[in-house]
């Protein structure tokens, strides 16, 4: 309701005060621009979508094993964490042009940026989750001569799920931003590219339209991760 009211207020004030469309288009202007642009919006959305997803999945594929490594050995933890921290301290926006030099104009550098931003919350949260079981339950398993594999399969991994999913929820929205940053630096397709292209021609309504699509994508992906989380750990948050 608040959201609809805000949209109406925006629409009304835009018309009453006669704000130029290239400065701040009204919601109707944005919808109009999107409809006018037509079918290639799907292509741009799709490109950004799969760059996001690929980067995100890559971050899971690498983040989870590294989280296990970090949990498993103090030595590995002391080696890996500083390295990860360095990669996190470098602003991705600054790093993106270099990726462009390395990997060219294709989709890959965007996927890499999406991966880099998503990686950190996944490894940190998963590692926290893997360490969350109480020392007592681990002692109980060890006293029963459980193998490391059993301890991970039966105790650490299920315990880590809620933390893993909070990492994923942060990571998925960051992945969208990462893909867009990648596109800003140099691209011929994607919603990020569309923002750059339309603003350079003062097609502000279209730039806003691309942002709306990006926001929608983010929200839907977040909702999807949250839904999977609820299905995977229904017990979480009900312990007390």
């Amino acid at each position: 309701m608040t959201f609809v009211a805000l949209l109406l207020l925006w629409e009304a004030s835009g018309r009453i005060f006669g704000v130029p469309i290239w400065l701040l288009p009204t919601p109707m202007d944005i919808v109009h621009a999107l409809v006018e642009r037509g079918s290639d919006l799907f292509l741009h959305t799709w490109i950004t979508f799969y760059e996001t997803i690929f980067g995100f999945l890559l971050a899971i594929a690498l983040g989870v094993p590294l989280a296990v490594a970090v949990t498993h050995s103090r030595a590995l933890s002391n080696t890996i964490y500083p390295l990860i921290l360095v990669t996190q301290s470098v602003p991705k926006v600054a790093f993106a042009p270099i990726l462009l030099i390395w990997f060219g104009y294709g989709d890959f550098p965007k996927i890499v940026v999406a991966f880099l931003v998503a990686f950190f919350p996944i490894i940190v949260d998963t590692a926290t989750g893997l360490r969350s079981p109480s020392p007592q339950i681990i002692d109980l398993a060890r006293q029963l001569a459980a193998s490391q594999l059993q301890i991970y399969a039966k105790i650490r991994f299920p315990s880590a799920l809620p933390h893993f999913f909070s990492g994923l929820k942060v990571a998925i929205t960051l992945s969208v931003i990462g893909a867009v940053i990648g596109e800003f630096v140099g691209a011929e397709k994607g919603l990020g590219f569309l923002v750059i292209e339309s603003t350079s021609h003062f097609k502000t309504p279209l730039a806003f339209g691309a942002m709306v699509l990006l926001a929608l994508m983010s929200i839907i992906l977040f909702g999807l991760v949250a839904a999977i989380e609820r299905a995977a750990c229904p017990w979480y948050g009900r312990e007390h």
């Binding site: 109480s134 007592q136 109980l140 398993a141 029963l144 039966k154 105790i155 299920p158 799920l161 017990w235």
Partner: peptide
């Protein structure tokens, strides 16, 4: 570790994703 011993702690330390029966069965599985 003596697997023929059983342990109980101050906290129940049950696994929250397992039912009562499945929690009880944990040692048997291990």
């Amino acid at each position: 570790p003596r697997t023929d011993f059983g342990m109980v702690f101050q906290e129940a330390t049950l696994l929250p994703w397992r039912s009562v029966r499945d929690n009880v069965m944990l040692p048997i599985e291990i």
